[in-house]
């Protein structure tokens, strides 16, 4: 059964009125195509994310990420500079906690989860660089 009201759809214009429009086609955009990501860039982000990739993986991830970024070219091409960004769905402000101590975890329970422990501390391999 096909219901007549579904075709063609109405688009609500900003003014509140409705006008007939072509049906949207999610996921396709004819605008500028993002520059496909290079293997060097993928290798760089892998390093930043502390991931090691074999050459085969590097090639495969590069083509997969390029595909996703190409898809995202539709938003990259949008001219929406005047639109403010939304980081949170709801604009809550000043969610604060009183400065009252709460119980801590039991140290033995905490350290029992650690891969390596020494002198009640988390033991780690040597660090080559200083903290930034």
């Amino acid at each position: 059964m096909r219901v007549a009201y579904l075709d063609p759809p109405l688009e609500r214009s900003p003014g509140g009125g409705c006008r007939r429009v072509d049906r949207g086609r999610p996921g396709r955009y004819d605008g500028r195509v993002a520059q496909p990501i290079s293997e060097d860039e993928v290798a760089h982000v892998a390093r930043l994310a502390r991931l090691e990739l074999s050459q085969a993986e590097l090639e495969q991830y590069t083509s997969q990420l390029a595909q996703v970024l190409e898809h995202a070219a539709d938003i990259e091409a949008l001219e929406i500079e005047g639109v403010p960004p939304t980081a949170h769905p709801f604009p809550l402000v000043n969610v604060l906690r009183e400065d009252v101590p709460r119980p801590c975890l039991d140290r033995d329970e905490v350290l029992a989860q650690a891969p390596d422990v020494d002198q009640d501390r988390f033991r780690i391999p040597r660090i080559l660089g200083e903290a930034p």
Partner: peptide, 15 residues
């Protein structure tokens, strides 16, 4: 019941 357009949902996946 009526059809309605929510135009920007087409960009949802990319966002």
């Amino acid at each position: 019941v009526e059809p309605v357009s929510v135009p920007s949902v087409r960009y949802g996946l990319s966002a």
